[in-house]
Simulated assay, not measured.
Amino acid sequence: MFSARRLDDGAGNRREKVSRLVDYLRECSAKGRAVDLGQAAFVTTFNLLSATFFSVDLIGFESDATQQLKETIKGVTKVLGAPNVADFFPILKRLDPQRIKKRLEFYFGGLLGVLGGIIDERMKSTPKELETKNDLLAALLDLMDGSEYDLTYKDIQHLFMLDNGARDVTKGGSDSTQSTVEWAMTELLANPDKMRNAKNELTSVIGEKNQVEESDISRLPYLQALIKETLRLHIPGPFLVPRRADRDIEIGGYIIPQHSQIFINAWAIARDSSIWPNPTSFEPERFLNNNIGFKGQDFELIPFGSGRRICPGLPLADRMLSLMLGSMLHNFEWEMEGGMRPDTTDEFGMALHKAVPLKAIPLYCN
């Protein structure tokens, strides 16, 4: 689903979703209304992924279902990121003293209900309607109908919940992309000179009237630099995906026992003063004079991990981040409601969210 060929084929779908985002921001601009930028980015990314997997848009920009789904996914990441005493004292697992298992059952139950509804609706479709579907759900239902695989209804539900690629539609892709877009706009609103640099680049490269296209991204080095700097300063998953040692191993003079659970503190690496000058400052310019990337080859910046367990949705996130941020900056001027400075406090968890959602007023400028 995330191969270069399939992503190229899906360029029109991404363009449509970003166009809807721009239309929504334009409506808010006409009414002088502040926008919850995190939620707007969440809806855009989630609908892109749901269209890829299920050929439907599941949520809207302003609906109760959107807020409920966002809170459910945020709840999953918060509970999964919470320290669990039962991890250190396995005898307590059955007791679940912090009710972590109970809360996860509640959140995952909600997500399974959403997935179940989608699958039920598809299974009621006529053969003619099914012929028009060319998504992951269609492929899985074909396998369920075949005789070669013993795939059940529940298997399909849980594949979307647990599989690395499909998990992006329910948690990873929408949550981390939303977080990065929100943090990028927060830093740009707090640093107007950086925002002006990005807008000037967009105007000079693609013109005032043209829309940002994926083919433009490689010609926008400052936009790419500010995304890298956002991922460095506000890494979506501070400890990445947990690892487990398959044997005793010595690293740096320390013995890591077999079966130990290992967390990589990518947040600390990205703020290490021996690697990054002025590590707590937002300085996209630091990436203009080097080839450091975030795709796993440069270990000083690994927001998506590295190696065989790198985030499978990275190629899609890379395109969507550039397309969404580029469109937000190129089409609108932005100001904080009441002229306040944006809050930059973060909230620790499996994903590093803003403690206070970013709400800003778009001023349409094209």
Rank of each mutant, 00 (worst) to 15 (best):
R33P: 09
L223R: 13
E214P: 06
C311E: 09
Y254F: 12
I91A: 14
N164I: 15
T66I: 08
K359F: 02
F332T: 10
Q211Y: 00
K31S: 15
G60Q: 10
S327K: 05
Y254A: 07
Y149G: 02
L7G: 04
D216Q: 04
T345K: 15
A11H: 06
L58I: 07
K124D: 09
V35P: 06
S204I: 03
G237M: 13
F42H: 12
A245E: 05
D23N: 15
T45G: 00
L329D: 11
R219A: 09
R14C: 11
F332S: 11
A317H: 04
P127K: 03
G305K: 01
S260H: 06
E337C: 08
D23F: 14
Q261D: 03
I59R: 04
R94F: 05
S327V: 09
P303M: 15
R14I: 13
V356L: 07
M320G: 06
P303L: 14
N210P: 02
M350W: 01
D142V: 11
K354N: 13
S55P: 08
I256M: 05
F108N: 05
R167Q: 11
E300N: 09
K171A: 12
G12L: 08
F304H: 02
G165H: 13
R196H: 13
A184Y: 03
H234Y: 11
S179N: 07
P284G: 14
D142S: 10
G207F: 00
K295H: 07
L69V: 10
P279F: 09
L358Q: 12
L25I: 14
L95K: 00
H234L: 11
F263Y: 13
E335Y: 01
I256S: 05
V35W: 03
L188W: 03
G32K: 03
I206M: 05
D64W: 07
M1E: 14
P83N: 07
E71V: 04
Q157C: 14
V79Q: 08
H353N: 12
F61R: 09
R309A: 03
